[in-house]
Simulated scan of single mutants.
Amino acid sequence: MGYSMGWMWIWPALIVFGVLVLGCLALVVTQSRSGGAVTTHHLDRPPARRILDERYARGEIDDEEYRRRQRELP
């Protein structure tokens, strides 16, 4: 019985290791789902259009200037 007790530490260690691995997997899956949706939206627009939208959102240009520049963009 003395020899078999030496390996009893492995079960709690395996359980802790398994919980850590599952936690990391859950974190990766949730980050990839939310992150992917946000980044693809910005990649759909051309850079000039995105800059124009950002300047309008910050209030650097007014409605008339925004519409005029929007018409000029391809």
Results as ranks from 00 to 15, higher is better:
Ala26Gly: 08
Leu27Ser: 10
Val28Trp: 00
Val29Asp: 10
Gln31Gly: 09
Gln31Met: 04
Ser32Arg: 07
Ser32Glu: 03
Ser32Gly: 07
Ser32Cys: 09
Arg33Pro: 03
Ser34Cys: 09
Ser34Pro: 05
Ser34His: 10
Gly35Leu: 15
Gly35Tyr: 01
Gly35Lys: 05
Gly36Glu: 03
Gly36Lys: 00
Gly36Asp: 01
Ala37Arg: 01
Val38Gly: 08
Val38Thr: 03
Val38Pro: 04
Thr39Tyr: 00
Thr40Ser: 03
His41Tyr: 01
Leu43Cys: 05
Asp44His: 01
Asp44Glu: 08
Arg45Tyr: 02
Arg45Ile: 15
Arg45Pro: 02
Arg45Glu: 15
Arg45Cys: 15
Arg45His: 09
Arg45Asn: 10
Pro46Gln: 13
Pro47Lys: 00
Ala48Thr: 11
Arg49Val: 12
Arg50Thr: 01
Arg50Asn: 04
Ile51Asp: 04
Ile51Gly: 11
Leu52Asp: 11
Leu52Met: 11
Asp53Ser: 02
Asp53His: 01
Asp53Pro: 07
Asp53Gly: 07
Asp53Thr: 02
Glu54Asn: 03
Arg55Gly: 05
Tyr56Ile: 11
Tyr56Glu: 09
Ala57Ile: 14
Ala57Cys: 13
Ala57Gly: 07
Ala57Pro: 05
Gly59Val: 08
Glu60Asp: 12
Ile61Glu: 04
Ile61Thr: 03
Asp63Phe: 02
Asp63Ser: 10
Glu64Gly: 10
Glu65Phe: 02
Glu65Thr: 05
Tyr66Gln: 09
Arg67Phe: 13
Arg67Pro: 08
Arg67Ser: 11
Arg68Thr: 14
Arg68Ser: 11
